[in-house]
Design a protein around this nucleic acid. Structure first.
Lengths: 338, 338
DNA sequence: TCTGGATATGTAAGTGCTTACAAATCATTA
DNA sequence: TAATGATTTGTAAGCACTTACATATCCAGA
């Protein structure tokens, strides 16, 4: 069942059928209806491969994601996929971990599938230095980067100002009386770097010297974090910090578990389901994932429609207050469960 | 840059180039090397659309997932994607919610993209009754169903025996002294049905009449669950149950929050990260997602290689013990945090 | 009724690959 | 050295569509 069959049955040429298929305006109402009727009754589906050949597009977007099993990225991918589908596109998913090599390879794979664009979710830190693969990709298709900043032609960055949010949150912890805030992080993404800077600058602004900033890299694993935090205690069992800021909810919860019952404020980032699950519930910086992802797809459609679009869009993040930290309340405590 | 250019530069015919591309054995070593060299230095990428036209495949697999933002399905998709990529396939993701209509539409979309197979993750209950869409899909491509059972030609089900696991877990709660176990669930998937049956049969086996089984449907939302559980208390603030089994970790944690400090065992299902995040940590039935998903891709490759494969494979689930329930310990308590 | 321009349709040449079949080359043996 | 069969290569016909260009049809206005 191909375009010839339809043409024959409808008594028209294949060009006309093709025009109907592509919603060309140069088809009379009558003909269009007849052809469409024949298509329906013949249960005809155009062959995407042939169409792809002719149009050089299959309306597919490559979504490159560090790790969908990460609840945060999963949400991003979910939003992106839904929006893409609404626009008539399909998402090819590639979860390639944070290794540069496999990322590069995945981009090549996606390009070899002739995707119409690539969306990067959770781009890693190294891209700051070696973005040759992104540059190469951007020469062929538009590249949208979510929460990462790489300024290149045909590259569009949708960001959330996590720097500011962390700066403000840490500042309010400091003005609430904290002096030594532990900063936990795991991978070095662009966004990760900004968050860390927010912490450092806030400390700086409050006159906390670098030596007294406690910055700790930890694995992204609950138990490990708890373990590491517990081990940081001195001989008398005291923690060497009086506040915790973590680059991710999971890490914050790891700390929370170690601090069980202690009056030490803890804040995470991402505002994921995890934040609600912990006891006490975790205050967390919401980085507007929904907006970022929705916008990314909007930008994409606009690019396809040849509109001029900004190459950089930034949203504000905001702190969602829960039990583990209320700005304003001096030494807002971790609740001691009854 | 196409196959003609390469043929010209390598001084061979396009057929030979195509043979090299497809790893045909009918090419002499010498020629192959020459062609490959030319391809590399010309930076040639074969056009997938044209290949698709010729081979009628683009090596793409449709992955239909109820909701990737659900941490459990996200993990499944992640594992599947990784395995597919290892086998040289790409995943087209479709997260279509649990509505029948959008599922059907998504399957049509995937088929119109001429995917080589479809993998279903998180298939909903209705499929038990109306699986016309799956049947239609299976007529064109193999359909793999993860944790669902629909016995049709060209349909392959990879299951986990959650029935047994729930039966055993509930049994051990009952033999530990529980009499009235609350069962929480949200959506009605095949797997959900089996779990519920496990609960009911265990109750039956222990002589708990149906009227005393407390089965509660709740929304998949932490606060709502907590709320609902709290509201179930009688005037004196007592809960009408002495144990909780939930069809998902999130629901279990919702209950856990309501039961803060109470000595009531709680068990979830899925063994997700959430289970570790809660306080107390949640005992949960691990439904072997990794095995299910890995197997699904294996089965697929075997089908493509024309091996005969079983249409139904079942794994055993197992309870992962954490603080919220230890079988054997009578009335194993929810730990009261110090 | 005729004419001109607008609108609708058809023809044919791509698009870049696969593959059956034919032809050429090669190695082997009598 | 010629004949034989195996191996390698080339030719040409698909695969199912798009689209520039040519042609046919339509309708309004003269």
């Amino acid at each position: 069942m191909n375009i010839y069959d339809i043409a024959k049955r409808a008594g028209v040429s294949i060009a006309t059928v093709s025009r109907v298929l592509n919603h060309s305006p140069n088809v009379s109402q009558k003909t269009r209806e007849r052809v469409e009727a024949v298509m329906k009754e013949s249960n005809y589906t155009p062959n995407v491969f042939a169409r792809g050949l002719g149009l050089n597009s299959m309306k597919m977007i490559g979504v490159l994601c560090t790790d969908v099993s990460d609840i945060f990225y999963a949400q991003a991918v979910s939003i992106i996929e839904n929006n893409l589908r609404r626009e008539g596109y399909h998402a090819i998913l590639c979860c390639t971990g944070s290794e540069m090599k496999s990322k590069k390879k995945s981009i090549e794979l996606l390009l070899s599938k002739r995707v119409d664009a690539i969306i990067l979710v959770g781009s890693a830190f190294q891209e700051q230095f070696d973005h040759s693969h992104i540059e190469a990709a951007a020469k062929k298709v538009p590249v949208i980067i979510i929460n990462g900043l790489i300024e290149l032609p045909n590259t569009y960055c949708i960001l959330c100002d996590e720097y500011k949010a962390v700066f403000q949150t840490v500042s309010s912890m400091l003005s609430g009386g904290c002096r030594k805030i532990l900063y936990l992080y795991d991978t070095q993404t662009y966004s990760g770097m900004k968050k860390l800077m927010g912490y450092q600058d806030a400390c700086g602004a409050f006159g906390i010297p670098y030596e007294q900033q406690i910055i700790q890299k930890v694995p992204k694993n609950l138990e490990s974090v708890t373990q590491i935090v517990l081990e940081s205690r001195d001989e008398e069992g005291r923690f060497p910090f009086d506040g915790v800021m973590a680059s991710e909810d999971l890490l914050a919860i790891g700390a929370l578990k170690a601090l069980k019952g202690k009056k030490i404020p803890v804040v995470g980032i991402n505002n994921s389901v995890l934040a609600e699950c912990s006891t006490p519930t975790l205050s967390s910086i919401d980085n507007m994932l929904l907006s970022l992802c929705t916008t990314s797809v909007q930008i994409l459609s606009q690019i396809f429609e040849d509109y001029t679009v900004p190459q950089k869009i930034s949203y504000n993040a905001k702190l969602i207050e829960r039990e583990s930290f209320h700005p304003g309340e001096v030494n807002s405590p971790v609740l001691t469960p009854d």
